[in-house]
Computed example of a mutant assay.
Amino acid sequence: MPDSKPITPVILSGGSGTRLWPMSRPERPKQLLSLTAEETMLQLTARRASGPRFTAPIVVANAFHADLVEEQLAQVDLSVRALILEPIGRNTAPAIALAAVAAGSGSEPMLVMPSDHVISDVDAFHAAIDSALPLVNEGWLVTFGITPDSPETGYGWIKIGEEELAPGVHRVDRFVEKPPRDRAEAMLASGDHAWNGGIFLFRADMYLGALSVFAPEMLVAAQQAMDKARREGVRIFPDAESFAACPSDSIDYAVMEKAPRVAVVPVAMGWSDVGSWDALHAISNPDAGGNVVRGDVVAIEATNCLVQSEPGKRVALVGVQDLIVVVSGADVLVLPRGRSQDVKKLIDAMKD
C-alpha cells in the first residue's frame, strides 16, 4: 500500500431512487434496501471502504433518513465520522464540498462514492485505489472509469487520454455527455473510453481549491452552511438559508470537466448502478429457468422473469416469460423486461 494518510470514505446517500418503484420510495430509497444481497446497498458501500487504511465514513444524506442510516451502519459494526444532513438537495458538487469541510479541508484523501452502486470485485476496486493514490497525494483529482461492456446511452463516458501518468492511470482527455446509440457504439468499439461511474478520489484541499476557481459561489455557500451548522453528536445540520443560496450542480460539470489535473483509472470491477429492475436482473444469479426471485414466489413454466416480493406477499406465476413483477405494500408493478426505464413514466402519471 502506498504511503498515504488514511482515506476518508465519503458516501453520498441523498438520492431517491425512483426508478426502482414500488420498493424504492422517498421514505426508504434504493440505498436503504436489500436488493442484491442480505445487506443493504448502503451497508455494502460502507463495508467495501472499511479497514485499517480507511477512517470512519462521512455520510451525506437527507435529514429524513438520519435514523435509518445510523441504524444500518451500526448493524454492520460501522460508525460514522460525520453524518451531514442536507436541508435541501443541491446535487453532488455541493454535497462533496460539505464533506470536504467536515473532513478538515486539508490534505486527507477522500474516496467519494454513491451509496447505491454494486461493485462485485472489491479487490479490483482496492487495486485501482492503490494505483491512484500517488497522483492524489500530488494534488490530482482522480475518477474511476468503468470498463464498458455495452453501448450504454444512460451513462456519461470518459475518453481516456493517451498519456499514462502512472501505471494504470491516464490523464482524462474529455468527459462525454450521455451519448446517442451510434456514438456509444463507436466509443465502445474504439476501446479508449470508459463509463463515468461517479466514483472519485482526491484530497479535500484540492477539491475545495478547484471549487474556489471554477465555482466560487458554491464554495462560499457550502463553507457558510458548515460554519453556521448545528451539531448533535456526529450529526451535522448545515445552515438551511446559507445552503439554499448554493448553486445546484454535479461534480462533473462544476469541477471535473474544468480542472487541469484530472486523471482516470480504468477498472473492471463488476460495477453496476442498479439503475432499473432490468439492471438488477442482469447482475443477479438466475435459476435454471432464467428467473430471479426474492420472497415468497411460486413460478410454474415461467422463464426469464424478475420477481421481487415483500415478506407476507405471495406471488404466483404460470406460463409467462420476460416479466418484471414487484410487490411492495399496497402496490404491484408488472411490466415486460426491457421496459423498466418506463417506471419513470408511471411515477409521473401517478403524480398527475
Rank of each mutant, 00 (worst) to 15 (best):
D249E: 14
R230V: 13
V265A: 05
L211W: 05
G145E: 00
K228I: 03
A204K: 04
T143L: 01
A221D: 05
D205R: 12
V255L: 08
G275F: 08
R171K: 15
H193P: 01
G270F: 09
F243H: 04
S276Q: 06
I146N: 07
V255G: 02
D249C: 11
S190V: 03
P260R: 12
P238K: 12
T143F: 00
P179L: 13
V176A: 01
A189T: 14
Q223D: 14
S242V: 06
Y155K: 09
V264W: 00
R261K: 11
L141P: 06
R230S: 14
L219K: 15
A215W: 01
I283K: 09
E257Y: 02
A186G: 09
D149V: 11
A268E: 13
I158P: 02
R261P: 00
R235K: 15
A279P: 00
L280Y: 07
V142Q: 00
A225C: 11
M269F: 11
V136I: 05
E257P: 01
D182C: 07
G270M: 08
F175Q: 01
V274Q: 02
F243D: 01
R174P: 01
Q223V: 06
A244N: 11
W271L: 03
V262F: 03
D239Q: 10
S190N: 10
D205W: 04
R181D: 13
V169D: 03
D173V: 00
A221V: 04
V267Y: 01
I236E: 00
R171H: 14
V267H: 02
L201P: 02
A279Q: 07
V262T: 06
G191T: 09
F214S: 05
A268Q: 13
L188V: 04
E164W: 06
A222W: 13
D149S: 11
P260D: 15
A189I: 05
M269N: 12
V213Q: 14
T143K: 00
G154C: 09
E185N: 14
K228L: 15
H281N: 04
A240S: 13
G154Y: 10
E138G: 05
Y253F: 09
W195K: 08
I158T: 02
A240T: 08
R235D: 01
G198R: 04
A254R: 03
A244V: 08
A221I: 05
Q223N: 15
I236K: 01
A189H: 14
V255P: 00
P179Y: 10
D149F: 12
A186M: 08
Y155W: 14
R230L: 11
G233T: 03
D273C: 09
K228Q: 14
R203E: 05
R183E: 15
D249A: 13
Q224H: 13
P180I: 07
A222D: 12
F243S: 03
Y253L: 12
T153Q: 05
S276N: 08
W157Q: 00
S212D: 15
G161I: 05
E241W: 07
S250Q: 03
L165G: 04
R183W: 04
I160S: 02
P266G: 07
A244F: 12
R203S: 06
S212E: 15
G139Y: 08
S242Y: 07
P167A: 12
H281E: 02
G156S: 07
A225E: 05
A279L: 02
A194K: 03
W140R: 13
M226Y: 10
A282R: 11
D227S: 14
E241C: 06
F175H: 14
F175L: 10
